[in-house]
Design a protein around this nucleic acid. Structure first.
Length: 523
DNA sequence: ATAGGGTTAG
């Protein structure tokens, strides 16, 4: 709703209050103001002032507004008012209150309220079952689902209730239970209901096999964008990213439903996770073809992430440049991307630009910045940024930040500094940090440090990669006994070192960013 | 008038 229209509605409401302040005429105007908190509650207050200018409907609108604006104290106020004025006896109002509490995860108030309802109707039950499932109380949710069927006051679930129960089953990964809910639903729901079908589809995609989900999808008599996206996400989540992409391609070619933001963001993330540049490019062309879609916001960030993950920094930077709203995610993506692809100096230039444009860096931004310093050998800068992060931006360093610092000292061969830093850390370093340092010891031939690390790792559980590295260090200095000891320990844990692999398509080597491009791209 | 479906990312 445009601001201009809102003003007109507010003015009409003021006229109405003077000429004929009847709830029948005022309530529809009030409901139109729901999205504008101030205007809404201004009118609401005026209507409340006169006993004959409001009724039950007024309060349902008010509670709905509280829901969308997260106005908890306002909702409590309304609750109290309803009790005092006697409106509380209306079941619809109790249901509205129940929904407000559940939507704000106030399970205690919601349960108390539900217990106080003498004869809950289908909406009360469904609200409760759905709210509990979403708040993480799946078992209680399903308990109520079965309780509602119990005599003497049994109430038959409807499609909305089944959707809520299936949601609880999905979160619990309760395959058998969900199957029986599905079967029960098939008995009670006779008309085609696409929301129910989609909920079932999502349940099988999450808990069952993708084959089941695909069969169901093929059998559905109607499919909309959510059906397609649910299937696509099922494949992507299961790691079948090529299949996820082919669902997208089919969706576009068969034109049964039009992809929306969720569809596109999901398929781009699938392409990114396997480094499938050519598939990602296909999605990009599709976005450009759709003149109603803009490369910005979530789609822009997802596209940027896809190019970065596929190693095409040139396109990544081009997408980054055209983003109108560059948020902390956009900056973080491009900064970490440059750092990962070893453009240390460019990373820091972009970080400076981020600060100039007034976007506050967060923990992930500093991962990129610190790892750029580490890769480029900029130790002084790294130390400075680490301090700025902690002391100026108030970001508590996490293991990953510590890791960057230790890695930075190690790569620079500053082992005393690395050791001092490790000792100054408030938390115990984790496996990967030791691994990075061992790697540095190997490169710089620092056996004393390797020994010290070995002492630290004694009896601790560390990743197999670290152990492999340690054994290789021993092997390279021909300390076979020590090397074998470590190998033995690897076998003892039942771990195997798998060969590293890269999914990046081969063409990425042609997409490396050259210094010329960097120099011209932002002056 | 009140309850119901899929969401990604650094």
């Amino acid at each position: 709703m445009k601001a201009q229209n809102l003003n007109q509605i507010a003015i009409r409401a003021q006229q109405q209050l003077v000429t004929n302040p009847k709830p029948l005429l005022l309530n529809p105007l009030l409901s139109l103001l729901t999205n504008s908190q101030n205007a809404f509650f201004h009118l609401y207050k005026q209507m409340l002032a006169h006993p004959f200018s409001h009724n039950h409907f007024t309060f349902t609108h008010a509670l709905k507004a509280c829901c969308s604006h997260h106005a908890r104290s306002k909702a409590l106020e309304i609750h109290a008012h309803l009790v005092k004025s006697g409106h509380y006896l209306d079941l619809v109002l109790q249901n509205s209150l129940l929904h407000f509490y559940l939507a704000h995860n106030d399970v205690v108030s919601a349960s108390n309220l539900f217990r106080s309802i003498p004869s809950p109707d289908i909406v009360s039950w469904t609200s409760l079952i759905s709210g509990l499932a979403k708040a993480g109380f799946e078992a209680q949710s399903l308990h109520h689902f079965s309780a509602m069927n119990a005599k003497p006051k049994s109430i038959k679930p409807n499609a909305a209730t089944f959707v809520a129960a299936l949601c609880a089953c999905s979160s619990l990964r309760a395959l058998r239970l969900g199957k029986s809910v599905h079967a029960y639903g098939l008995k009670l729901i006779v008309d085609v209901n696409i929301v129910f079908d989609n909920a079932v589809l999502d349940f099988y995609a999450k808990c069952g096999t993708l084959k089941n989900a695909k069969n169901l999808f093929d059998k559905m008599s109607m499919r909309d964008v959510i059906s397609w996206t649910t299937l696509l996400m099922g494949y992507a989540r299961g790691g079948y990213c090529e299949e996820a992409f082919s669902v997208f391609k089919q969706m576009v070619l068969n034109a049964e439903a039009e992809p929306n933001e969720a569809t596109i963001v999901t398929v781009l993330s699938a392409c990114a996770s396997i480094g499938a540049l050519s598939l990602g490019q296909w999605v990009h062309s599709y976005i450009d073809l759709r003149h109603d879609l803009v490369v910005d916001g979530n789609i822009g960030n997802a596209l940027l992430n896809m190019y970065v993950k596929c190693g095409d920094m040139q396109m990544g930077l081009r997408v980054f440049d055209i983003l109108v709203h560059k948020d902390v995610i956009s900056w973080g993506t491009v900064i970490c991307g440059l750092a990962m692809n070893d453009y240390g100096k460019r990373t820091l230039e972009l970080f400076a630009r981020m600060l100039v444009e007034g976007v506050e860096p967060d923990d992930v931004t500093f991962i990129g910045v610190l790892s750029a310093c580490s890769h480029a050998g900029l130790v002084n800068e790294g130390v400075m940024f680490f301090k700025a992060m902690r002391d100026f931006y108030g970001i508590v360093p996490q293991m990953r930040h510590y890791g960057c610092m230790v890695d930075m000292y190690g790569r620079a061969g500053l082992f005393d500094e690395a050791e001092a830093f490790l000792r100054s850390m408030p938390v115990e370093a984790e496996g990967p940090i030791w691994g990075a340092l061992l790697q540095a010891c190997k490169i710089h031939g620092n056996e004393r440090m390797s020994e010290w690390i070995r002492g630290h790792l004694k009896g601790k559980s560390v990743g197999v990669g670290t152990l492999a590295l340690l054994s290789n260090i021993y092997a390279s200095s021909e300390r076979w006994d020590d090397a074998n000891k470590v190998r033995k320990r690897m076998r003892g844990t039942g771990l195997k070192k798998t060969a590293g692999c890269s999914w990046l398509e081969l063409q990425m080597s042609n997409n490396r960013l050259d210094s010329n491009f960097c120099a011209t791209s932002w002056g």
